[in-house]
Design a protein around this nucleic acid. Structure first.
Lengths: 158, 158
DNA sequence: TCACAATATTTTGTATACAAAGTATTATAT
DNA sequence: ATATAATACTTTGTATACAAAATATTGTGA
């Protein structure tokens, strides 16, 4: 095999990778929108609702850590859930700075009748894969992660 | 090896995958914010600016297709670039519905002095990987993609 | 106790993303 | 020629995400 051929293969592979990442983002977004249309609730809102259901009385700060999101983001998500009557905010614990979250009966109904979305769905899906595929995916992801971390700082040239 | 051990390995791998995806999102977002802090322009704005620079006079619709974004999203991004004096909108072509975009001298300066970000950076990075890693990443990505597409519709159970 | 630091949330401002509605312009059908 | 359809874009409304500033409450040191 000539050097030129190898170079071409590399280029093609690199382009496919970048394209796959784009596709991945696109697919995820499209499915998210479809989910919203069907179930009248967003994936993030449902994820928050489920987490509150699993930890009644959880604080906003704790919830934000579990969701890997900024507190102010979660505050907004809870706003919308509260407005729709799915969760309640209580400030009657010992520390009155803390907001305690709870799911209403209506919120519980939503959880019962709505399938998984986002990360929850990914976990569900991934669990069903055969070993060989699990390993391949994991290897690839870790490589991307390492590469992104290393190269995040700089990379001159336009 | 017992069946139990295999099951444990599978569970661990699945959890690692999901966690990696989360980390990937986190790393990408964190780097994006850091980039904005350092260069006073967002990755999307810079990406759009570069694309316009490569295709002077491009229409908004064409640009949105190349960026895999909705026209209204790109319209907003161009708004901000225009406000900062980096691009111009012209409606003086034959068809006056069409907006033609161009980069100003000031915009060109920004491109020159700002390193790659987002997808551009990813392409740059991926090109430098050894063959074996390219293949692993690609295999993993394609699997995830296929799985997500298939399982996107439904997946009952809370 | 009282000023001041620390903590937990909320609010405000910016950017992104999309859909749907609105506007302007061009093409088409009768 | 003129109503109507199609096209290109802008505007508006909703959701997400973060940072920074503001608010309220609790803890601490002197």
């Amino acid at each position: 095999m000539t050097k030129t051929t190898v170079t071409k293969d590399r280029r093609r592979a690199a382009e496919e990778i970048v394209n796959s990442v784009r596709l991945l983002q696109g697919v995820a977004q499209k499915q998210s929108r479809e989910f919203v249309r069907q179930h009248k609730i967003t994936g993030q809102q449902l994820g928050a609702l489920r987490m509150v259901a699993l930890s009644p009385g959880v604080s906003l700060g704790d919830l934000s850590e579990r969701m890997f999101l900024h507190i102010s983001s979660v505050s907004g998500i809870i706003d919308r859930l509260e407005k729709r009557g799915y969760v309640t905010r209580d400030r009657n614990g010992g520390d009155r700075r803390v907001v305690h979250l709870n799911v209403t009966e209506q919120g519980r109904r939503v959880i019962r009748r709505t399938p998984l979305a986002g990360m929850g769905l990914l976990i569900h899906t991934v669990h069903k894969l055969p070993d060989r595929q699990l390993r391949d995916i994991l290897t690839g992801l870790k490589l991307i992660l390492r590469v992104m971390k290393l190269d995040g700082g700089d990379a001159r040239n336009g």
